[in-house]
Amino acid sequence: MLELAIDARRGSFHLKVECRLASPWTVIFGPSGAGKSTLLRILAGLDRSRPGEQVQARVQFRDRLLTDTGQKLWIVPGQRASAFVTQHPALFPHLSVTENVAFGLRHLDRAARAERVRQMLALVDAEDLADRRPQHLSGGQAQRIALARALARTPELLLLDEPFSALDGVASDAMLARLQQWLRAHRVQAVLATHDVTDALATESEVLLLQEGRQIALGPAKDVLAAERSRMLARLESSE
């Protein structure tokens, strides 16, 4: 259960969202510029304040208050038990794949760390990449490693900002299935932002429809995206 109330202004852009996300897999759907990334960055605890911005936010995840600007409470990103993966993998270029995945595991001893890294690389099907440097990875490989690095800390909340954009369709579907199974097993709640309607319809999920910073609808994918789906079907039929 993730409860959020956000009112953020950046220049002329105004994001205002107030909702309660209970589903283990929520998709934030909207065109680019709708405010999806801004919303996720605030949930992750980044973007605390920059000059010329006003961010008012209250975020509660399960029993824990993560952000409440009214009380000047802002838990730092690393202590929110949440992970954030974006379309830009941001792997550390001076470290190998193994060292990247192990970066957030300082609390574990050496053997446990190595074992966790191995498990995570297996999850994203990248065991053969362990010794590579990020410069020698393809875009899709880098995104998989970024996901492994984020999940290695076994977060309770996973925030995804179009993280599969560099994977091709089939790989992305297989990856998604494996990821969802892992998330269920570890009781992780996931929030995925996308502008791709097939991503949103691919899963039994709750969808938060966002447009120009406003929350348009929240509910099961088949209801919220009915219009989108019929538009897509119409387009398919007319092309046949």
Binding site: A90, F92, G104, A146, R149
Partner: peptide, 13 residues
């Protein structure tokens, strides 16, 4: 790249 700094912070650094 500031996204690297963000990534490190998210990983608890």
């Amino acid at each position: 790249d500031s996204s690297l700094v963000d990534a490190a912070r998210l990983l608890g650094a």
